[in-house]
């Protein structure tokens, strides 16, 4: 099982904007555009270095009214994708 990412923070090289509640990202290393879904956008906004992974999962569980275990799995999965 992968370790918890402590106080995850966005890569400062990534250009992003929130538009109509969805994050749109440009990753400069591959010159690609990415459109995040609603849940991923919510997680993305928490990645400012002030929150622990478990705090983010708790916030997502509350915001989207899903079981904590499901939110933890989603947050973990998203963060692993970003690493």
């Amino acid at each position: 099982m992968s370790k918890e990412v402590v106080n995850p923070i966005r890569n400062g090289q990534v250009a992003w904007r929130i538009i109509e509640g969805r994050a749109l990202l440009i990753t400069p290393w591959d010159s690609m555009m990415h459109a995040l879904n609603e849940a991923a956008t919510a997680i993305w906004q928490y990645l400012d270095g002030s929150c622990k992974e478990s705090d983010i999962a708790a916030a997502i569980a509350e915001q989207f009214d899903v079981p904590l275990a499901e939110a933890e799995s989603d947050v973990r999965g998203f963060l692993q994708e970003l690493l």
């Binding site: 090289q13 250009a15 749109l24 440009i26 400069p28 010159s31 555009m33």
Partner: peptide
């Protein structure tokens, strides 16, 4: 999203990509 798909050569540099966005 549509516009960005059709822009030539998205920048490989964070600040420039931000400005383009």
């Amino acid at each position: 999203k549509d516009l960005l798909k059709n822009i030539l050569s998205l920048p490989q540099n964070g600040p420039t990509a931000g400005r383009l966005l």
